[in-house]
Design a protein around this nucleic acid. Structure first.
Length: 866
RNA sequence: GCAGGGGUAGCCAAGUCUGGUCAAAGGCGCCAGGCUUAAGACCUGGUCCCGUUGUGGGUUCGUGGGUUCAAAUCCCACCCCCUGCACCA
């Protein structure tokens, strides 16, 4: 067993991570987005949690009562889909389990029940988090499919409903007829996330009903010449309040969007040829013509022909040798698709280019406005006169479900939404955002914009794990909607065993959260107290990717449901973890499971690597070299701290000034989440100081330095520091606080001495010499330095010391900022005292005196070598 | 398209808010030396260009202008790269 495991055992035995309400102490409630247990965690997951843990430990050191809880988010379909895939024997998935995560076959093949899957991975993740040393109070763990959690979500939905934030309406979703369910990326072949694109289906009146042509560019209707159909294709007539016509092939996909239409007849394409249709908005009549470019399965199998502004249409239309109108100009020149027919026959590329040019730079001649505006206007006009229907398409299709059929768009007629588009709600959210701490601050505008852009959000689904929706028990609350205020539940979990599920009704929660009504018993009363004590999340940690959804929903729901003093105080987001500079992905196979990383490098090393290697907002890089480097250095510190023996007192004092001047900045760095800077200062730079000090004869490191170093580094590398602390001082850092002693940190002549030796060594590398005469600058130069440090006016200095003119001009800009505290006497004495060290250490003879030439500066003695 | 972030030496990356101590931290790589039987690790030094190799000079921070005694840092324009856009965790 290594020292980390031993220390971990002590922590668990001593109950170091249990959070208790303590009215004597200020509280700090820190949460990180709970994990979704559908696979073991990798080092990428560790970043957010480690950062949260570092801060939890930091606040604990400041004397706060810290609550850092964790639960598991199991809501949604990926877990169910994964269980299904295991049941189906999905080879791709098995390979990931075995090759990347090293889970034995007999273990994962058992996980065909979603609940088993959840428990297996949740357990795996929890073990990993414990092993990472996270200060999580596991007694507050819960899963989002717990019946009591469901009651809490019922309460939330009831409140949202009462405030009018729950609404109903139509909604398109990606759908697999064979699976008979909506599909997300995890339900498709190749894990492709289906994207839905909205088209305008324009209705053209014909003798048989409305021909529907779907388009992304309704504004081009002003340049229409005809309708293309295929004479050899079968068309279907459908009816509800009106009759519409689409191709049979197209209907196979479209029928899921128009469940209220029924088929009343069929037509061969031939029968339509030669007939005229009426064009809405223009009122003109145009012919229906056979067009070989029409694909019956594409769109509706009916195309409105705009030869002026579609390369395809133009290609087909020029066979007819007729004139056609141009209705869009670019930079004053007519834009004619006819000019863009490519030599190589790549119509698609040419059409895309045309589309882009006309959309970004085009001017719509008939409507006298930009193409962008014309599109919106035309759309509105068509819908207003009821000559358009919305048609949806899978934009990145065709996509196939894991059952093998093509994913289509289905329209849900009665979908529930949370209406984040509500103006007054947005205003509340914006207002609260203004008073929140956003770390890093750069992301505040992203929140601001997200609050602004968000509209209604579908909040239920028909499938998956999770809680039933209060107003339609056949539905499950969608996963981003049931995880917006769940942090409050952590506070209740330890007490919920005292109640039956049915007891957790609206009034139960009303009392705890609002103080409305009377407590049903003393435990209930206690829950209210705990809520009052803890709530108001002090810091919520998550990855940057959640800003545009979860974290913004979190703000929205809190401002809707909780009083001002219980609202979130800070949101902390961090970038992701790259592996050797590349994004970790299953396909690249470069995922490092956390478990393996800990075995290989140790938890402290992994913690350091993910949290102290780059600035919070940027992606951080993980690599074997980086991890090994950290591991070595940790061992370096351990060895240095264990050294014993008397040593050079001067140097001990020097190391103190170096250390305490670093220590003074530490609180500010932690408070600003500048973990990398803490590490740079205490872990890297200070290590160099120690190396120098040892070389200069400091045999062991002063106890006070070790003690404070342990405490200051404890948040980042708790295992190593607590191990050392217990070993060297006989107590745990959990019993310490981070009080920075008020030690004077004046500059020490050793600083100058160190630099001088470095210069001397540089010099020796360039040229062989046996003896050196070190010349210290003349006293007046020290006086000039002193005056400069006090920011005395240059003119006055020069008046007093005319020789100073050259010196100051030599210093250039540095003259304005110089900080120099040593006296001539001090430096002289210090060098004389250390003359022997230089002689024996560098194996040269040394003479010390005043400068002889004019090179010397107070902070740079001159060397005369022989 | 809309929104956000970014372009710094061979590579990665700090510095930009608060202009001067910035030829620009740190790491990697590379070179030389120490240690070692040896390799790795570790330690020391070097790593923009020039200078007969000591505190000197020149030219740099995407490109082009501007403000200033002074710009990687402030202002303007341009070029390029990355991320998100929803019902999915």
């Amino acid at each position: 067993m290594n020292y980390e495991e031993k220390i971990l055992e002590l922590w668990e035995r001593e109950g170091r991570h249990i959070a208790r309400m303590n009215q004597e102490k200020p509280k700090y409630f820190i949460t990180a987005a709970f994990p979704y247990p559908n696979s073991p965690q990798h080092i990428g997951h560790a970043r957010t949690y480690t950062l949260a843990d570092v801060m939890a430990r930091y606040y604990r050191l400041l004397g706060y009562s810290v609550l850092f809880p964790m639960g598991f988010h199991v809501t949604g379909t990926p877990i169910v889909a994964m269980a299904d895939r295991i049941k189906e024997g999905d080879k791709e998935l098995f390979e990931i389990f075995e090759k990347i995560y090293g889970i034995p076959r007999e273990q994962y093949t058992k996980l065909t029940d979603p609940k088993d899957l959840v428990l297996f991975f949740a357990n795996e993740i929890e073990t990993g988090m414990r092993r990472m040393g996270y200060m999580i109070d596991w007694s507050r763990k819960f899963y989002t499919f717990d019946p009591k959690f469901e009651r809490f979500i019922h309460w939330q939905m009831k409140k949202l409903y009462d405030k009018g934030f729950l609404i109903r309406g139509k909604h398109p979703i990606p759908y697999s007829p064979r699976l008979n369910s909506s599909v997300g990326a995890h339900d498709t072949k190749g894990d492709i996330d289906p994207e839905i694109e909205e088209y305008t289906g324009i209705l053209f009146e014909s003798p048989y009903g409305y021909l529907v042509a779907s388009t992304l560019r309704p504004e081009t209707i002003y340049g229409i010449t005809n309708i293309w159909i295929r004479e050899d294709v079968e068309y279907i007539v459908l009816e509800t309040d009106k009759k519409i016509i689409v191709s049979e092939e197209a209907w196979k996909r479209l029928k899921y969007q128009f469940s209220n239409y029924r088929e009343i007849g069929r037509l061969k394409g031939k029968e339509l040829i030669g007939k005229n249709v009426k064009v809405p908005l223009l009122g003109i009549e145009i012919p229906i013509i056979h067009g070989s470019i029409v694909k019956p399965e594409e769109g509706t199998g009916i195309v409105m022909s705009v030869p002026g502004h579609s390369v395809y249409d133009n290609f087909e239309y020029r066979k007819l040798k007729r004139e056609y109108p141009i209705i869009i100009s670019i930079n004053g020149k007519p834009s004619d698709a006819g000019q863009r027919i490519p030599e190589n026959g790549d119509l698609e590329m040419a059409n895309k280019e045309l589309y882009r040019d006309e959309f970004t730079n085009g001017y719509h001649i008939p409507l006298k406005m930009s193409v962008k505006e014309a599109r919106e206007r035309t759309k509105e006009d068509l819908y207003r006169i009821d000559r358009a229907i919305r048609i949806y398409k899978i934009a990145n299709g065709p996509i196939y479900s894991r059952a093998g059929d093509e994913v289509v768009v289905k329209i849900l007629d009665d979908q529930w939404f949370i209406n984040y588009g509500d103006r007054s709600w947005k205003r509340l959210a914006q207002e609260h955002l203004n008073s929140m701490k956003i770390i890093p601050e750069e992301f505040r505008t992203r929140f601001k914009n997200t609050i602004e852009w968000l509209d209604r959000k579908a909040c239920t689904r028909s499938r998956g794990l999770g809680t039933r929706f209060l107003y339609d028990q056949s539905q499950i609350v969608e996963s981003l909607s049931d995880s917006t205020i769940y942090m409050a539940v952590y506070i209740l979990v330890p007490y919920l065993n005292n109640y039956r599920v049915e007891q957790l009704d609206e009034s139960f929660f009303d009392y705890i959260f609002y103080g409305i009504g009377k407590p049903i018993d003393s435990t209930h009363e206690r829950m209210r107290e705990e809520f009052l004590y803890w709530y108001g999340v002090d810091a919520r940690h998550s990855g940057v990717d959640l800003i545009t959804n979860h974290l913004t929903f979190y703000i929205f729901n809190h401002v809707a449901l909780f009083p001002k003093e219980k609202l979130p105080k800070a949101i902390v987001t961090n970038g992701s973890v790259l592996m050797d500079g590349k994004k970790m992905s299953k396909s690249l196979g470069n995922i490092i499971p956390l478990k393996r990383a800990i075995e290989q490098y140790g938890a402290d090393t992994v913690r350091m690597a993910v949290v102290a290697n780059s600035d919070i907002k940027s992606d951080t890089n993980f690599s074997d070299t980086i991890a090994k480097g950290i591991k070595e250095r940790i061992h370096g510190f351990i060895e240095l701290f264990r050294r014993k023996g008397e040593g050079n007192v001067d140097i001990q004092n020097w190391i103190r000034t170096r250390f305490y001047s670093r220590l003074k900045e530490i609180k500010e760095l932690y408070s600003n989440y500048e973990i990398k800077r803490v590490a740079d200062s205490l872990f890297y730079e200070f290590y160099n100081d120690l190396q120098w000090a040892i070389r200069r004869g400091m045999n062991s490191i002063p106890d006070d330095v070790i003690r404070y170093w342990n405490i200051a580094m404890f948040p980042i590398i708790p295992f190593t520091t607590d191990m050392l602390h217990r070993e060297l001082f006989g107590r745990s850092i959990y019993d310490e606080t981070l009080e920075i002693p008020d030690v004077k940190t004046q500059p020490h002549p050793e600083d100058l001495f160190r630099e001088m030796i470095q210069d001397l060594e540089t010099l020796r590398n360039l040229r062989e010499f046996r003896s050196v005469r070190i010349g210290i600058a003349k006293p007046w130069k020290f006086e000039v330095y002193r005056l400069l440090s006090e920011r005395v006016k240059m003119q006055d200095i020069i008046k007093k010391y005319p020789e100073a003119k050259d010196l100051i001009s030599k210093l250039k800009n540095r003259a304005y900022t110089i900080e120099f505290k040593y006296s001539h006497r001090e430096i002289m004495d210090y060098l004389v005292k250390n003359r022997n060290w230089i002689e024996s250490n560098m194996n040269i003879s040394v003479e010390i005196g005043e400068e002889m030439e004019r090179y010397a500066l107070p902070d740079k003695p001159e060397f005369l070598i022989r």
